[in-house]
Design a binder for these strands. Sequence first.
DNA 1: GGTGGTAAGAGGTCAGACCACCGTGAACTT
DNA 2: AAGTTCACGGTGGTCTGACCTCTTACCACC
Lengths: 245, 245
Amino acid sequence: MKLKFQKIERQTITETIIDQIKEKILQGELKPGQQLPPERVLAETFSVGRTSVREAIRALQYMGVLEVRCGEGTFLTENLSLLSDHFKASYIIRQYSVMELVEARKIIEGETVYLATKRSSKEEKEALKQIFDVAIRVQDDVAAFLKADFAFHKKIAEMSHNSVLQEFFTAMRELTLEENLEVIKKTGQIQKAIAFHEEILHCILLCDPEAARRVMLDHLENIENTVQELTSRHMEQEGGLEKTI
Amino acid sequence: MKLKFQKIERQTITETIIDQIKEKILQGELKPGQQLPPERVLAETFSVGRTSVREAIRALQYMGVLEVRCGEGTFLTENLSLLSDHFKASYIIRQYSVMELVEARKIIEGETVYLATKRSSKEEKEALKQIFDVAIRVQDDVAAFLKADFAFHKKIAEMSHNSVLQEFFTAMRELTLEENLEVIKKTGQIQKAIAFHEEILHCILLCDPEAARRVMLDHLENIENTVQELTSRHMEQEGGLEKTI
DNA sequence: GGTGGTAAGAGGTCAGACCACCGTGAACTT
DNA sequence: AAGTTCACGGTGGTCTGACCTCTTACCACC
């Protein structure tokens, strides 16, 4: 007879604490933005050393759940964009190429704009227009425009009313920020971007999801091409090194 | 005149260490699976306390970069699926609904199968067929079939030759595992899944990307509908609680 | 009503100690 | 000679208590 035993799983104190804090959050006892008890108090509450508490906090911090402000205290993160941070971390080893990212963006954003057109409320559409107007106003300031550009795309992602897609969008966009800066610096790109945005906005306001998607794809293909140009130029300069983020 | 000073940003020792380890990994000095020096040695190397090193390691551990084995040592993670782990973590607070996830899967997988059909090599297609055959062989074992099902979709994601989409796929799929189990348990669902898979495989082998996408969407819509059925049934049972993962 | 100092309380860091766990190899048994 | 046992050294896990820096709030001062 073969005895089957379950593998004993040791749980470190740190893990236990992490789980307990997670639990508290899940049960709604801790709300976003709320302050946690100080480390020393927590340590005493759990009857463990401060080290263990600190390591648990550190883990949750880098998971994006907690926010630690030196001298002030530890807080539950206000607006969580957990995925994106760790997507950024993941590129440490698996270096996504720019082209892969742009391709993924086409797929995600083509769909978010489609859904956004179909699902968003009048108020949301109005808010999107506001963001577009801001972008126009700051078009001479590259940094400010980039920010407004980001806000525009992000708003569309929100308007899709699908938080999974939102997370994916944020994750990708943060990784392509540098590239975007380069792209946008190219002469005429800001004007082109504005034109595309205007058309996208137009399609959304007219409730034409298909057209919105088409224009968004054009927009991103334009970016794709520019990235490709820049990349090949870099490769010439740098002797054929593959360009990754 | 308005004096403009730059904001001084402090970096904690822990952060510095994290950056240094990241750097080492990026530069290829540390390879996946490789063992790091013991904590005490690292502490001495950096001329810092062991606490700081430990917190850095803990952070990297929960980011999925390092693997810590008690009594053995610290290692660079072998096969990294960083994104997915933290996507899972993210649901702690932002509880994605099942429907959102399925919708996102439709978008991602519709595209991966399209790209896979266009880009994959003969060998990859052959490998996919192997996986399909395995699934048929184990169709009476729910757990085994679920695994094979997962492998099938995962292989397709790989065949898209876009690692960003792969990460997204893995992240979502792991979150929907439970649901998938429920879906697959429903009578006839395994047969349906096999039929869909067969058709998808057929389209891929025939190099018809459009058809492949269409069938994949059908497949996922079938899942979507089943989930919806199960959900509404749950809601009746549980008194109208919203069903989230 | 500002200004600047100060004290309390938070997180950040350190050193040293001890415990739990794992792999190894020496010593032992067969 | 081959297999078994077990003590040891190295590794991570934890605790303590001390000291540092940072932030805030309060208060005396001008």
